[in-house]
Design a protein around this nucleic acid. Sequence first.
DNA 1: CGATATTTTGAGCGGAGTCAACTCTGGTGG
DNA 2: CCACCAGAGTTGACTCCGCTCAAAATATCG
Lengths: 213, 213
Amino acid sequence: MQALAHTQAFQTVPASHIHAASILNGPGALTTYSADEEIYGQGERAGTLYEVRYGAVRLYRLLSDGRRQVVAFHFAGETFGFEAEGVHSFFAEAIVETGLRKVVTHANSNINPEMLALALRGMVRAQQHLLVVGRQCATEKLGAFLLDLAERQGDPDRIDVPMTRLDIGDYLGMTIETVSRSISKLKAAGILKLHSLRSVEILRPEKLRQICE
Amino acid sequence: MQALAHTQAFQTVPASHIHAASILNGPGALTTYSADEEIYGQGERAGTLYEVRYGAVRLYRLLSDGRRQVVAFHFAGETFGFEAEGVHSFFAEAIVETGLRKVVTHANSNINPEMLALALRGMVRAQQHLLVVGRQCATEKLGAFLLDLAERQGDPDRIDVPMTRLDIGDYLGMTIETVSRSISKLKAAGILKLHSLRSVEILRPEKLRQICE
DNA sequence: CGATATTTTGAGCGGAGTCAACTCTGGTGG
DNA sequence: CCACCAGAGTTGACTCCGCTCAAAATATCG
């Protein structure tokens, strides 16, 4: 029942997203993945793009010392799977029950402005992520992360957070304890309200970035 | 602390706003910039790519609280200036005397695979940067940074470091004092040798990532 | 309802930031 | 040629945020 609620929440797709992705191909088959199922692995041959129809995806890389760096999350309407080389440099996993539409692209054949647009958007997103992880205190990072989620999900107040605290920590470069503490701090300050572990309400968006000390 | 101005950067952008390069390899005029000279500014209209012929360039963004996040450095042979929106979201400055070849681009006409490849490489570079900044201790960050420089400059041992400690700090998300201390630590450990402030020799490349305690 | 995983909270410690003083470097002009 | 100087870099002392280890509380699922 809980999972179903997530699914529905993520099905809201901004019009611009649908537009960009659907030009890339004809109607593709919908593939479904259950929670924590691998979509592709580091080192696998690339060449397929994936458009999220519903659910959520994490991209991550395992470092040599065993740590995990989550590079990106993707939600309904977003397209991922771009690679500069022929192989994937990250793992892709479904976070919850997720539906993907595969977009097979073979080198040089499918170059068009829409595809370039998606690639550039991916680059901008990575650079934006960099700004967040780069230099901020834990609470600021979390605030920026939540605001990003809100923006991408459409609803400015109510956020669905399908990923675990570990995912968030590995995404923002901090431990689960610090993630938890930051949430508690924001909650205590009356900026956030948790309806459940996976449903967050932003009461004071403008204050989210300022709490830091 | 006020952080990033999210709202604009996270907005989805219609594909029509993208000004993509049409021709990457036409003969372009060589423009020279002196140290610290601005190449383009945040908010300026985009649409031109730049190929570095010699010298070095920093891309950075000013945050609302006055902090500066250096997003990338670029050296000879590299191309920068990609934007997903019609305007530049970063500043570009020459670090030292630098020669650039401008590549004037026309919107939506004649998009080629080479162009996409460059954009994807930019994305991968940003994600790689993310892995470095996401690392835990300062010395590891600096080590990864130096190894990156060595790789991009060709010489595995001797590195030219044109940027200041402040540049490095703003790139890695740490203070100049910590940058300096990290260098001193690596020097003391016999891993680095400084021939001058701008010339670094890597004595033990394999140890660069491991020093952290 | 019990078993397990996830999350929260607590206590203590260490690394990076802050503030400050000092040293080094490179450039300028006498 | 050298003295001077401003900026860059280094080093030190101290503080504090976030990591670690540990335990309690809560959520999830069979």
